[in-house]
């Protein structure tokens, strides 16, 4: 016969009555010292066990008995759902808890470093060119409405560069989608939009010393378009957001920091990876068109001087920056010669 002590909360008022619970065949007797109630054991529902939490027995009349006699309750009401049983089994074994932490760490690494980049590539490829073109147009529209002004370059100069650009992308896969667009933005910059439009600022055209240097910049952006980096980055970053929400959906306050900070580091890491990939593409593309990757190194040096970027970004920026450090990119360009 199993018997244990508990506290009865009758569900009518906020009272706490000590009771003795006893097994009597298929029945359970609950005695508060004066009155003994007899109930079928099957009519009482035990909650899922959690280590360190008192068990709660739900009585058919709405009353609840709270008790810390885990062994006795587990013997009388052994049946639970599979989820509760599995969780309890792991939670009560320290070695399993630490194995769980190791699995979590390995799992996060696997998703971040392998699964997401691997999955984002085919998904980005499956997006139809029309959708990409539309997204690119929308992005350009909102840029034009906010930070970009019409180019101040002469029509002849723009046409001349359009011609050179067309020759530069001739034979590329999807060459008909590549378009060059000039804008005035206040600082030297070039970037690729989804769909194949490459935006070059007037300041960038002014900053370069010769045609090869601008071609080097364009080759890098062509690399972004060919690799569908814009779409892949969006997909991978969204994947990280989903992963973090799934893991810590109820994160608030400081705990939120434990989610936000690594997300930021991972996302800038993805960005640096795509930049390095676009650089590699650029070096190969330049060589195919008879231009030395030295032009890339030269234009990086020039831009560095122009914008006053720090020479060595230091260890902090190496992990926070969205681009690899300029020194690193110049070194790789000169090695690719």
């Amino acid at each position: 016969m199993i018997a244990f002590d508990g506290i009865l909360h009758d569900g009518r008022t906020a009272t706490a009555v000590p009771v003795r619970v006893e097994e009597r065949g298929d029945d359970i007797a609950v005695c508060d010292g004066t009155v003994t109630a007899r109930l079928p054991r099957a009519a009482i529902v035990a909650d899922a066990p959690i280590p360190g939490v008192p068990r709660i027995l739900r009585l058919p009349d709405g009353g609840r008995i709270e008790s810390t006699e885990h062994a006795a309750i587990a013997a009388l009401w052994p049946e639970h759902g599979v989820v509760a049983r599995a969780a309890y089994a792991v939670e009560t074994r320290w070695w399993a808890v630490f194995a769980g932490i190791a699995i979590t760490a390995a799992g996060i690494w696997l998703v971040v470093a392998v699964a997401l980049p691997l999955a984002a590539d085919p998904v980005a490829r499956s997006i139809s060119p029309e959708v990409e073109l539309y997204l690119g147009k929308q992005a350009l529209k909102s840029l034009d409405a906010t930070v970009m002004k019409p180019s101040q370059l002469s029509a002849e100069e723009q046409e001349e560069w359009e011609g050179k650009f067309d020759a530069f992308v001739e034979g590329e896969k999807g060459e008909e989608n590549f378009v060059i667009a000039f804008r005035h933005a206040g600082r030297p910059n070039a970037f690729a939009l989804p769909g194949g439009t490459i935006v070059v600022t007037d300041e960038m055209v002014d900053a370069v010393d010769n045609d090869d240097e601008l071609l080097a910049v364009l080759a890098h952006e062509i690399g972004h378009v060919r690799g569908r980096h814009a779409m892949r980055l969006v997909l991978q970053n969204s994947g990280i957001a989903v992963l973090m929400t799934a893991l810590a959906g109820d994160a608030v306050g400081v705990t939120f920091l434990a989610v936000a900070l690594p997300s930021m580091l991972v996302q800038s890491g993805y960005s640096r990876q795509f930049e390095a990939e676009a650089d590699d593409y650029a070096f190969a593309h330049l060589k195919r068109h008879g231009v030395s990757p030295q032009a890339f190194a030269n234009v990086m040096r020039r831009l560095e001087k122009e914008t006053g970027d720090a020479k060595d970004d230091g260890p902090v920026m190496r992990y926070l920056g969205t681009h690899p450090s300029s020194a690193e990119r110049i070194r790789r360009a000169e090695e690719a010669r």
Binding site: P51, A86, V90, E91, T92, V97, I103, G107, A246, A248
Partner: peptide, 15 residues
């Protein structure tokens, strides 16, 4: 322990 198991099983069950 409850927290660590929650984290691990959340990852394994996709949230």
């Amino acid at each position: 322990r409850i927290w660590a198991v929650s984290l691990c099983l959340s990852l394994l069950t996709l949230g």
